[in-house]
Design a protein around this nucleic acid. Sequence first.
DNA 1: ATAAGGGCACCGC
DNA 2: CGCGGTGCCCTTA
Length: 102
Amino acid sequence: MRSDFNQKVWSALKLIPRGRVATYKEIARFIGNFKAARAVGQACGRNSKAPRVPCHRVVKSDGSLGGYSGGVNKKIYLLKQEGLKIVKSKIENFKKKKFEFI
DNA sequence: ATAAGGGCACCGC
DNA sequence: CGCGGTGCCCTTA
């Protein structure tokens, strides 16, 4: 619904370069509501807009993939395709792969 | 306007 | 290290 929040989320998502990942919390913080990590995730998956943002590049703060509207395995697949490695449902070298906004 | 749900984060056990 | 409970926020019905 093009709420400011949603739009900001998508903008942040689009800023994530290929092969990098961001956390919901980071995004939330980037937007200004660093407590809205949850809302961020929904904004991504629910994005009412057609150009689906790379929501698969967003993961949980602990490095786990979190969830995905189309299925977690799909998310894993996409991430792997971008050069990321998934081990035990978690991102290898997550700290290094994490893209920092701000 | 209220209620419920949801791709989280953090803390305690 | 895994599980459960709590807190915070946003969207939709």
